[in-house]
Amino acid sequence: MGYNVADPYTTLGVARTATEAEIKKAYRKLAKELHPDKNKDNPKASDRFSAVTNAYDLLNDKDKRARFDRGEIDGDGNPASPFGFGGGGGNPGGFRPGPGGGGFQADGPDLSDIFENMFSSGGRGGFAGGFGRAREKGGNILYKLDVPFVDAVTSKPQRITLGDGKTIDLKLPAGLESGAQMRLTGKGQPGPGGNGDGIVTLTVLPHRFFERAGDDVRLDLPISLSEAVLGASVRVPTPEGAVMLTVPKGSTSGKTLRLRGRGFHRKDGTRGDQLVTLMVDLPVDDDALIEFVTGWKDKDLRNPRGGLGV
């Protein structure tokens, strides 16, 4: 059974005057403490997690927060009773004695339209139909999902655990970038008008040697002096496994080679490339190399920095 939020401010432990930053900070702290992955043996924590998420979803929406503060909706985002019973945040829909003590007069908004819709003979469903049209869905539940870099490049499906403990596999969207969101229809809080949705925010994690450059993947590849001078065929890691790459004869550090179609998937169905930058790796204190360079340096009359004007 879902946990109904009586007062979102109380649920998050913040004052009604709390700023957006204060509300977000309180939510993050509680969500971290109550996340189902950390409380698998405590079903009450899952209920509280859902309640906290529902409260944040309402207060994070400026329009819904204002409507709640005015007493137009309750803590679950559902319309407050037009008769003022059980409403929060003042008495916008209440009644007071009319002039001279006779009858009643409504405070706040004009309720004539509400009653006209509820009791109109032309309305479908009459009284019950009036309330039925005001039914709202339950609140959304927010999730965060960290996606390994290689999985993001290869669009590998990701498994996520929902607030009710169930797991589903998500198909990653093409063109995925950190901060992208996916909507899980009907995976939110229950409500009179149906379930809300699950909103998943995706973060692509960094990799220890791959880097992203738009839709391309960059890699600095160490090669030996002999491979650079004489040329070679070397193994190169890619997000989908190692491949062979031809290093041209006479390659220098900074030379970039391209492996086509090894980058991120684009929305148009194409893929970026992998850009491999060669880095000549010299041995330290190699006597043979030192002896060779000592005898060869006088023969190399080039100025490799001439292009820089020095």
Rank of each mutant, 00 (worst) to 15 (best):
5 V>H: 05
7 D>M: 05
8 P>W: 02
10 T>Q: 15
15 A>P: 00
15 A>Y: 04
15 A>W: 01
16 R>P: 07
16 R>C: 04
17 T>V: 08
17 T>G: 15
18 A>H: 01
19 T>W: 07
21 A>G: 10
25 K>E: 13
28 R>Y: 09
28 R>M: 13
28 R>I: 04
30 L>G: 00
31 A>F: 06
31 A>T: 04
33 E>C: 05
34 L>T: 00
36 P>T: 03
38 K>L: 12
42 N>F: 10
42 N>D: 14
43 P>L: 06
48 R>K: 14
48 R>D: 13
50 S>L: 08
55 A>L: 01
55 A>C: 04
57 D>R: 06
62 K>I: 08
65 R>C: 02
67 R>D: 12
69 D>A: 13
74 D>H: 08
81 S>T: 09
81 S>I: 03
83 F>H: 12
85 F>L: 14
86 G>T: 05
89 G>K: 04
91 N>T: 14
95 F>V: 08
100 G>F: 06
104 F>G: 07
113 D>G: 14
115 F>N: 13
117 N>G: 15
117 N>V: 09
118 M>W: 11
123 G>D: 12
123 G>T: 15
123 G>V: 11
134 A>I: 03
135 R>C: 02
136 E>G: 11
138 G>Q: 04
139 G>Y: 02
142 L>E: 03
143 Y>W: 10
143 Y>F: 13
143 Y>M: 09
147 V>N: 01
148 P>R: 07
149 F>P: 00
150 V>S: 05
151 D>P: 06
152 A>R: 02
157 P>V: 03
161 T>Q: 15
167 T>D: 14
168 I>W: 09
171 K>T: 13
177 E>L: 10
177 E>R: 15
178 S>R: 05
183 R>E: 10
188 G>A: 07
188 G>N: 04
194 G>A: 09
199 I>A: 01
202 L>S: 04
204 V>F: 02
208 R>K: 15
209 F>R: 15
210 F>G: 03
218 R>C: 09
218 R>N: 15
224 S>C: 01
225 L>I: 11
230 L>F: 02
231 G>F: 03
233 S>H: 11
233 S>E: 14
237 P>G: 05
240 E>V: 08
240 E>T: 14
243 V>N: 03
248 P>C: 09
254 G>K: 06
255 K>C: 02
258 R>E: 11
261 G>A: 05
261 G>V: 06
262 R>N: 10
263 G>Y: 00
267 K>W: 07
268 D>P: 09
270 T>Q: 12
282 L>S: 07
282 L>D: 04
283 P>S: 12
284 V>I: 12
284 V>L: 12
285 D>V: 10
291 E>A: 14
291 E>L: 14
294 T>P: 08
295 G>F: 07
298 D>A: 13
303 N>I: 06
307 G>N: 11
309 G>S: 09
310 V>Y: 10
